[in-house]
Nucleic acid binder design. Structure first.
Length: 473
RNA sequence: GGCGCUAUCGUCUAACGGUUAGGACAGAGCCCUCUCAAGGCUUAAAUACGGGUUCGAUUCCCGUUAGCGCUACCA
């Protein structure tokens, strides 16, 4: 039975790297008909915030993938303590009474890493108990074997066999002096208790895993499968951080810019994983079917953003493709929040005209603004002058257009015929006829096709705007 | 410093010893066209470096270099 977990700590907003870890866990669970556990790792009480909790849930809900079980680590501290003390009773952990303030001095490294404080590690049971009874604070440390040259080993499902000498692992803490379990302790105790079968997480935990293997073994638990994921990094090779890279690393930034959840999911899947058959645009089910650890590669992936553009071009392309291929009604619905105060019926009319012209949902506000405005914002009257034409030509075109458009039926074919005929009368090219009209009604040169646009705008608005344009000439 | 992981076009990636090193995005050009898009076609662009092993290395081994991670009573 496959049971995976995603275990964010609520100390910041939902990071896109975390989102990817969540997605890969989800895909693995669904691929194997397993269970997806969401566990909030909130043992660091000082750093947790409600805002962060909200950000994580908002982000995960937006991804629209869901989860099967939810736990809060802070509810389970007693369990973690029990496991820690069980390890202590086996003699595999000891009390370290070194005050936190004195530690930095002791740990001054001279060449190698700090491993342990011999005085504390070798403290007799009686002495240890006596000082604890006297109320002296201590941290509980794991007693990493020092008499053995056998490496700690595990097989990573992505990176293959891993091993590390005990001599390179320090006596890490299990319980802090305030009695709260450390991340390593809480995480392992929960993974054991929740019967997690596969731990899929960022590669930043790869070397931590040796400690976890030690804890699992000390607790007498079977090892889960570990699968580590390459990290997401910035174009300069540094790791993504809020301080350095700003909102580009937050899931909500993508949501607010008008990414479709699935486009975002699809994009993230392509960073560090490949179906190996050249597919890129993949539906949720295709991703689920194709997902495997074999497809995960070993090197970090760059999220290709710049100062000018916060979004990776491939993410934008994926989003644009999805927008283009989705049903008009569905797109219109998605567009709703990006056109405040607009009539939904109007949006539905406009949607087909902009469907293949927008890349992000928010683009609707610039691509279709003139449909929703009562009055056009000011534009340069020079724009009204057609290619290879002059002001008198623009004037003639608009005057003629006013005439034609006051009687013609406002339907695509009729408009097409009437306006082309008018161009012929004026002995100008169709394009020269259309451009002044387009600028007059849209307020700019680049816009959706003219006849469809006029049809949506209607006779009244069209004539009003042509008159306004005429006044400019 | 120690330990670990990694290294193919600008970016994401494919090629599990033999390919003209493939695809995608972004870029350039052309076509289509009422503008903008969309679409079609074409094009430029990579195996970090040095040693091995092998008839033959992108691929296996070693070294160098570079990047990243861990080295907390953070997660």
């Amino acid at each position: 039975m496959v049971r995976v977990r995603f275990a964010p700590s609520p100390t910041g907003f939902l990071h896109i790297g975390s989102a990817r870890t969540f997605i890969f866990n989800w895909l693995y669970a669904r691929h194997n008909n397993g269970t997806m556990v969401l566990r909030i790792d909130d043992t660091d009480v000082d750093r947790n915030t409600q805002a962060s909790r909200d950000s994580i849930f908002d982000g995960l809900k937006w991804l629209d993938l869901g989860w099967d079980e939810l736990y809060h680590q802070s509810d389970r501290i007693e369990l973690h303590r029990q496991v820690a003390w069980k390890i202590f009773e086996k003699g595999l952990a000891y009390r370290d009474f070194t005050p936190a303030s004195a530690e930095s001095d002791t740990k001054e490294r001279s060449g190698g890493p700090w491993l342990f404080n011999p005085a504390m590690r070798e403290l007799s049971n009686e002495e240890s108990q006596r000082r604890a009874d006297a109320g002296e604070p201590f941290v509980l440390r794991f007693r990493v074997p020092r008499d053995s040259s056998h490496p700690v080993e595990f097989r990573d499902a992505v990176y293959g066999p891993q091993s590390k000498l005990p001599a390179d692992i320090e006596d890490f803490a299990l319980l802090r002096s305030n009695g709260i379990p450390t991340y390593h302790m809480a995480s392992c105790a929960d993974d054991i208790d929740l019967n997690i079968s596969h731990i899929i997480r960022g590669q930043d935990h790869l070397t931590n895993t040796f400690k976890h293997v030690l804890i699992f073994e000390a607790a007498g638990a079977a090892l889960p499968i570990f699968a580590h994921l390459p990290l997401l990094i910035a174009p300069d090779g540094s790791k993504l951080s809020k301080r350095k890279h700003g909102p580009v690393v937050s899931v909500t930034t993508y949501r607010d810019a008008g990414f479709l959840p699935h486009a975002f999911v699809n994009f993230l899947c392509l960073l560090g994983w490949s179906p190996k058959d050249n597919r890129e645009q993949m539906a949720r089910q295709e991703l689920t079917d194709a997902f495997s650890f074999e497809g995960i590669n070993h090197s970090n992936a760059v999220v290709n953003f710049t100062d000018q553009d916060p979004f990776d071009p491939k993410a934008v392309w994926l989003n644009a493709e999805l927008i283009r291929t989705m049903p008009v009604e569905e797109l219109a619905k998605q567009l709703l929040p990006f056109v405040p105060n607009a009539d939904p019926g109007k949006i539905l009319q406009v949607t087909p005209l902009i469907q293949e012209r927008i890349k992000l949902l928010r683009d609707v506000s610039t691509a279709a603004d003139f449909f929703f405005l009562d009055e056009l914002p000011p534009y340069d009257s020079a724009e009204l002058i057609p290619q290879k034409g002059d002001a008198p030509m623009a004037l003639a075109v608009l005057e003629r257009a006013r005439e034609v458009l006051s009687t013609v039926e406002f339907k695509h074919d009729a408009l097409d015929q009437a306006l082309r005929a008018a161009a012929q009368d004026l002995k100008i090219k169709p394009g020269q006829m259309f451009q002044p009209i387009r600028v007059a009604v849209c307020g700019r040169k680049n816009a959706p096709p003219l006849f469809e646009t006029l049809e949506v705008l209607g006779r009244e608005t069209t004539l009003k705007r042509i008159n306004a344009a005429l006044a400019l000439l």
